[in-house]
Amino acid sequence: MASTAPTRKAMTGKAVTRAPRDTAHEGFLGHRRGRWAKVAGTISIVALLAYLLTDATPRPNGGTWLGYTLGSIGAGMIVWLSLLGVRKRVIGSKPFSLKGWTSAHVYLGLSLIVIGTLHTGFQLGWNVHTLAWALMMIVILSGLWGISLYATLPEKLSANRGEVTQQQMLEAVRTLDRQLDLAAQPLGADDAALVRMSLEECRIAGSLGQRLSGNYHRDGNARALAAIGDKVMAAMRSGRADERLQQIQFLLERKEAALAQARRHIAMKARLELWLYVHVPVTIALLAALFAHVLSVFLYW
């Protein structure tokens, strides 16, 4: 049409266009329909074929041209993969998808099992070179542990907390403590001491041993509940039900339930992070060993 194309000014482009964003509802393992799984798979297969089809003399090792190639790729990947820790903390305003990074991190990291191992030419021994390989394998295995946790725990974490936040869980315990304190005012010294045990000798997270075992039977509240429970039963048997003690028992039971929920929550959150306490320090050790390995190869080979 002849009348078209008058010059367009103002209000074009960026100002009115929303920044592109990823609205696909898929997790990091299936990011972009498994793009990084495919990339990692291809790299592994190519590396394996190259290894099998190359006739290295006298035997495959890290010093052949294939060995150097695999070693360079592997070292580069290790450094890049370790940068995820930086990437997740530097947000900036530029487009990137941390989910994409995680996805690549997982699959490329797994492909390192193939690349790193083929690089060794299966020449393992007690030296700094094998140390680097071993540390790499520990990092990858701890990563697999992490993936399995990420795949199973969030659903349980969500189910346990319902719509309650961690703050509210802790607040609930404190509220019950206040009510216990009030309800204990008219009690005799013995009974009050039991309530005090719940108030003073109960730690929500507990000791390290309790946290690791998940066994809180020795905790102040559990002991107080058991003792008060016995007293309530004894009073019932003697035909003189003690309403004040029953109220205390009821509050202790509620506190026990609130504690259990909070402890499950904390335990699961801890497990979601625990594997990182292996993964990250060993990665740093790996980077050091890798540096020593590369340096020694170039200096002494």
Partner: peptide, 11 residues
């Protein structure tokens, strides 16, 4: 990059 909360979600 669009919403930072979405960009920064690792999973």
């Amino acid at each position: 990059g669009g919403p930072a909360c979405v960009r920064a979600c690792p999973t």
